[in-house]
Design a protein around this nucleic acid. Structure first.
Length: 257
DNA sequence: ATGGCTCCCCTTGGGAGA
Protein backbone atom coordinates (compact mmCIF):
# COMPACT_ATOMS: atom_id res chain seq x y z
CA UNK A 1 0.00 0.00 0.00
CA UNK A 2 1.54 3.24 -1.16
CA UNK A 3 0.71 6.50 0.63
CA UNK A 4 1.96 9.86 -0.65
CA UNK A 5 1.92 13.47 0.48
CA UNK A 6 2.20 16.45 -1.84
CA UNK A 7 2.02 20.17 -1.11
CA UNK A 8 0.58 21.21 -4.47
CA UNK A 9 0.67 24.99 -3.95
CA UNK A 10 -2.71 25.53 -5.64
CA UNK A 11 -4.74 22.44 -6.56
CA UNK A 12 -6.34 23.99 -9.63
CA UNK A 13 -3.24 25.65 -11.02
CA UNK A 14 -1.40 22.37 -10.38
CA UNK A 15 -4.05 20.04 -11.82
CA UNK A 16 -2.14 18.93 -14.98
CA UNK A 17 0.98 18.19 -12.92
CA UNK A 18 -1.05 16.44 -10.20
CA UNK A 19 -2.87 14.21 -12.70
CA UNK A 20 0.34 13.37 -14.54
CA UNK A 21 2.01 12.38 -11.28
CA UNK A 22 -1.00 10.31 -10.14
CA UNK A 23 -1.01 8.43 -13.42
CA UNK A 24 2.75 7.88 -13.32
CA UNK A 25 3.09 6.68 -9.71
CA UNK A 26 -0.44 5.44 -8.85
CA UNK A 27 -0.34 5.83 -5.05
CA UNK A 28 -3.24 4.23 -3.17
CA UNK A 29 -3.70 7.20 -0.84
CA UNK A 30 -2.62 10.83 -1.39
CA UNK A 31 -2.57 13.67 1.10
CA UNK A 32 -2.61 17.13 -0.47
CA UNK A 33 -1.81 20.48 1.15
CA UNK A 34 -2.15 24.09 0.08
CA UNK A 35 -5.22 23.59 -2.07
CA UNK A 36 -5.67 27.39 -2.14
CA UNK A 37 -9.28 26.86 -3.14
CA UNK A 38 -12.66 27.02 -1.40
CA UNK A 39 -14.62 23.77 -1.03
CA UNK A 40 -16.74 24.41 -4.11
CA UNK A 41 -13.70 24.82 -6.34
CA UNK A 42 -12.10 21.49 -5.48
CA UNK A 43 -11.56 19.66 -8.83
CA UNK A 44 -13.49 16.53 -7.77
CA UNK A 45 -14.50 15.43 -11.25
CA UNK A 46 -10.93 15.30 -12.56
CA UNK A 47 -9.80 13.43 -9.46
CA UNK A 48 -12.68 10.96 -9.70
CA UNK A 49 -11.84 10.45 -13.38
CA UNK A 50 -8.26 9.65 -12.34
CA UNK A 51 -9.62 6.83 -10.16
CA UNK A 52 -9.72 8.45 -6.71
CA UNK A 53 -12.34 9.21 -4.12
CA UNK A 54 -11.65 12.33 -2.08
CA UNK A 55 -12.41 14.25 1.06
CA UNK A 56 -11.22 17.83 1.41
CA UNK A 57 -11.25 20.85 3.66
CA UNK A 58 -10.85 23.97 1.55
CA UNK A 59 -10.48 27.67 2.19
CA UNK A 60 -10.48 30.66 -0.14
CA UNK A 61 -6.97 31.68 -1.29
CA UNK A 62 -4.99 29.96 1.46
CA UNK A 63 -4.26 26.61 3.08
CA UNK A 64 -6.62 23.72 2.39
CA UNK A 65 -6.01 19.96 2.73
CA UNK A 66 -7.40 16.83 1.07
CA UNK A 67 -7.09 13.06 1.16
CA UNK A 68 -7.52 11.02 -2.03
CA UNK A 69 -7.96 7.26 -2.04
CA UNK A 70 -8.47 4.49 -4.56
CA UNK A 71 -10.53 2.59 -1.99
CA UNK A 72 -13.20 3.45 0.54
CA UNK A 73 -12.33 6.41 2.71
CA UNK A 74 -14.04 7.32 5.98
CA UNK A 75 -13.54 10.85 7.26
CA UNK A 76 -12.67 10.95 10.97
CA UNK A 77 -12.22 14.66 11.49
CA UNK A 78 -11.48 18.02 9.87
CA UNK A 79 -9.59 20.60 11.87
CA UNK A 80 -7.75 20.00 15.14
CA UNK A 81 -9.56 19.82 18.47
CA UNK A 82 -9.38 22.51 21.15
CA UNK A 83 -9.70 25.76 19.21
CA UNK A 84 -13.07 26.26 17.52
CA UNK A 85 -12.03 29.81 16.56
CA UNK A 86 -9.20 28.62 14.32
CA UNK A 87 -10.33 29.50 10.80
CA UNK A 88 -7.42 27.92 8.89
CA UNK A 89 -8.06 24.67 7.00
CA UNK A 90 -4.95 22.74 7.93
CA UNK A 91 -5.92 19.26 9.08
CA UNK A 92 -8.04 16.40 7.82
CA UNK A 93 -8.05 12.81 8.98
CA UNK A 94 -9.47 9.60 7.59
CA UNK A 95 -9.58 5.85 8.01
CA UNK A 96 -8.42 4.02 4.90
CA UNK A 97 -7.84 0.29 4.71
CA UNK A 98 -7.58 0.06 8.51
CA UNK A 99 -5.02 2.85 8.76
CA UNK A 100 -5.62 6.26 10.31
CA UNK A 101 -4.21 8.86 7.93
CA UNK A 102 -3.76 12.42 9.21
CA UNK A 103 -2.99 15.07 6.57
CA UNK A 104 -1.55 18.30 7.92
CA UNK A 105 -0.33 21.67 6.77
CA UNK A 106 1.50 23.15 9.72
CA UNK A 107 1.70 26.98 9.71
CA UNK A 108 4.81 28.57 8.19
CA UNK A 109 5.18 31.02 11.09
CA UNK A 110 7.27 33.74 9.46
CA UNK A 111 8.14 36.37 10.35
CA UNK A 112 9.54 35.21 13.68
CA UNK A 113 9.18 36.31 16.35
CA UNK A 114 5.63 37.66 16.04
CA UNK A 115 1.97 36.64 16.06
CA UNK A 116 2.37 34.27 13.12
CA UNK A 117 5.16 32.45 14.89
CA UNK A 118 3.05 32.29 18.06
CA UNK A 119 0.24 30.76 16.02
CA UNK A 120 2.63 28.20 14.57
CA UNK A 121 3.83 27.07 17.98
CA UNK A 122 0.27 26.97 19.34
CA UNK A 123 -0.88 24.92 16.37
CA UNK A 124 2.08 22.60 16.90
CA UNK A 125 1.07 22.07 20.54
CA UNK A 126 -2.53 21.32 19.59
CA UNK A 127 -1.34 18.89 16.93
CA UNK A 128 1.03 17.19 19.38
CA UNK A 129 -1.80 16.75 21.89
CA UNK A 130 -3.99 15.20 19.19
CA UNK A 131 -1.14 12.95 18.04
CA UNK A 132 -0.76 11.65 21.61
CA UNK A 133 -4.33 10.40 21.56
CA UNK A 134 -3.86 8.70 18.20
CA UNK A 135 -0.59 7.10 19.28
CA UNK A 136 -2.15 5.69 22.44
CA UNK A 137 -4.79 3.83 20.47
CA UNK A 138 -2.18 1.26 19.47
CA UNK A 139 -3.26 1.08 15.83
CA UNK A 140 -1.49 1.92 12.54
CA UNK A 141 -1.37 5.73 12.23
CA UNK A 142 0.33 7.77 9.51
CA UNK A 143 0.68 11.53 10.07
CA UNK A 144 1.99 13.14 6.92
CA UNK A 145 2.16 16.50 5.25
CA UNK A 146 3.98 19.79 5.24
CA UNK A 147 5.30 20.22 8.78
CA UNK A 148 7.20 23.41 7.90
CA UNK A 149 10.09 22.18 10.04
CA UNK A 150 13.58 21.08 9.10
CA UNK A 151 14.24 18.72 12.02
CA UNK A 152 18.06 18.86 11.88
CA UNK A 153 20.92 20.63 10.11
CA UNK A 154 21.10 17.66 7.73
CA UNK A 155 17.71 18.75 6.38
CA UNK A 156 18.84 22.19 5.14
CA UNK A 157 21.19 23.08 2.28
CA UNK A 158 22.72 25.95 4.31
CA UNK A 159 21.69 25.71 7.96
CA UNK A 160 23.44 28.93 8.99
CA UNK A 161 21.11 30.92 6.74
CA UNK A 162 18.02 29.52 8.40
CA UNK A 163 18.77 29.80 12.12
CA UNK A 164 16.37 32.70 12.62
CA UNK A 165 13.70 31.43 10.25
CA UNK A 166 10.40 30.13 11.66
CA UNK A 167 11.05 26.76 9.96
CA UNK A 168 14.33 26.20 11.76
CA UNK A 169 14.36 28.24 14.96
CA UNK A 170 15.19 26.34 18.16
CA UNK A 171 11.58 26.58 19.38
CA UNK A 172 10.33 24.97 16.19
CA UNK A 173 12.86 22.15 16.19
CA UNK A 174 12.14 21.58 19.88
CA UNK A 175 8.42 21.31 19.14
CA UNK A 176 9.18 18.65 16.54
CA UNK A 177 11.40 16.79 19.01
CA UNK A 178 8.66 16.88 21.63
CA UNK A 179 6.25 15.35 19.13
CA UNK A 180 8.75 12.66 18.10
CA UNK A 181 9.43 11.82 21.75
CA UNK A 182 5.95 10.28 21.87
CA UNK A 183 7.48 7.43 19.85
CA UNK A 184 6.79 8.26 16.20
CA UNK A 185 9.10 7.11 13.42
CA UNK A 186 10.33 9.53 10.72
CA UNK A 187 10.00 7.15 7.75
CA UNK A 188 12.54 8.83 5.49
CA UNK A 189 15.18 9.11 8.19
CA UNK A 190 14.66 5.54 9.33
CA UNK A 191 15.50 4.24 5.86
CA UNK A 192 18.03 6.96 4.91
CA UNK A 193 19.63 8.13 8.17
CA UNK A 194 22.43 10.22 6.69
CA UNK A 195 21.55 10.99 3.06
CA UNK A 196 20.83 14.47 1.84
CA UNK A 197 17.13 14.39 1.04
CA UNK A 198 14.99 17.43 0.32
CA UNK A 199 11.27 17.83 -0.36
CA UNK A 200 11.17 21.56 -1.17
CA UNK A 201 13.16 23.80 -3.49
CA UNK A 202 12.08 27.44 -3.71
CA UNK A 203 11.31 29.16 -6.99
CA UNK A 204 14.21 31.61 -6.70
CA UNK A 205 17.68 31.43 -8.15
CA UNK A 206 17.34 27.99 -9.69
CA UNK A 207 17.16 26.38 -6.26
CA UNK A 208 16.11 23.04 -7.74
CA UNK A 209 18.93 23.06 -10.28
CA UNK A 210 21.43 23.79 -7.48
CA UNK A 211 19.72 21.34 -5.12
CA UNK A 212 19.39 24.15 -2.58
CA UNK A 213 16.50 22.51 -0.77
CA UNK A 214 14.79 21.80 2.52
CA UNK A 215 13.28 18.65 4.00
CA UNK A 216 10.00 19.83 5.49
CA UNK A 217 7.42 17.29 4.29
CA UNK A 218 7.41 14.31 6.62
CA UNK A 219 5.86 10.90 7.28
CA UNK A 220 5.44 10.05 10.96
CA UNK A 221 4.47 6.45 11.70
CA UNK A 222 3.05 4.86 14.82
CA UNK A 223 4.80 1.59 15.84
CA UNK A 224 1.98 -0.44 14.27
CA UNK A 225 2.59 1.34 10.94
CA UNK A 226 6.37 1.38 11.32
CA UNK A 227 6.57 -2.42 11.47
CA UNK A 228 4.94 -2.48 8.03
CA UNK A 229 7.29 0.06 6.41
CA UNK A 230 8.83 -1.35 3.21
CA UNK A 231 10.12 1.72 1.36
CA UNK A 232 10.02 5.52 1.25
CA UNK A 233 11.19 8.23 -1.10
CA UNK A 234 10.77 11.60 -2.76
CA UNK A 235 9.53 11.93 -6.34
CA UNK A 236 12.17 14.56 -6.87
CA UNK A 237 11.89 14.67 -10.66
CA UNK A 238 8.35 16.05 -10.43
CA UNK A 239 9.83 19.30 -9.10
CA UNK A 240 11.55 19.68 -12.48
CA UNK A 241 8.32 19.53 -14.46
CA UNK A 242 6.83 22.56 -16.16
CA UNK A 243 4.50 24.48 -13.81
CA UNK A 244 5.63 22.43 -10.81
CA UNK A 245 4.88 23.12 -7.17
CA UNK A 246 7.85 24.27 -5.10
CA UNK A 247 7.45 21.00 -3.14
CA UNK A 248 8.01 17.49 -4.46
CA UNK A 249 5.79 14.50 -3.58
CA UNK A 250 6.95 12.19 -0.76
CA UNK A 251 5.73 8.60 -0.35
CA UNK A 252 5.94 5.45 1.71
CA UNK A 253 5.11 1.83 0.96
CA UNK A 254 3.51 -0.27 3.70
CA UNK A 255 3.10 -4.06 3.77
CA UNK A 256 -0.51 -5.24 3.70
CA UNK A 257 -1.93 -5.61 7.21
C1' DA B 1 20.21 42.45 4.11
C1' DT B 2 17.57 42.23 0.12
C1' DG B 3 15.16 40.05 -3.42
C1' DG B 4 14.79 36.68 -6.26
C1' DC B 5 9.60 33.53 -8.20
C1' DT B 6 4.72 31.81 -8.16
C1' DC B 7 0.34 31.18 -6.23
C1' DC B 8 -4.22 33.36 -5.24
C1' DC B 9 -7.91 37.16 -5.79
C1' DC B 10 -15.07 39.96 -7.31
C1' DT B 11 -6.87 40.83 -9.76
C1' DT B 12 -3.80 44.56 -12.75
C1' DG B 13 -0.83 45.14 -7.27
C1' DG B 14 -0.64 42.94 -2.63
C1' DG B 15 -0.41 39.15 0.67
C1' DA B 16 1.63 34.84 1.52
C1' DG B 17 4.66 31.30 0.94
C1' DA B 18 9.55 29.16 2.91
Amino acid sequence: MKIATYNVNGVNGRLPVLLRWLQETAPDVVCLQELKAPDEKFPLQAINDAGYQAIWHGQKSWNGVAILSKTEIKELRRGLPSDPDDTHSRYIEALVNGIVVGCLYLPNGNPAPGPKFDYKLQWFERFTAHARGLFDRGIPVVLCGDYNVMPTEADVYKPERWVNDALFRPETRQAFKTLMAQGWTDAIRKLYPTETIYTFWDYFRDAYGRNAGLRIDHFLLSPQADTRLLAAGVDRHVRGWEKSSDHGPVWIELANG
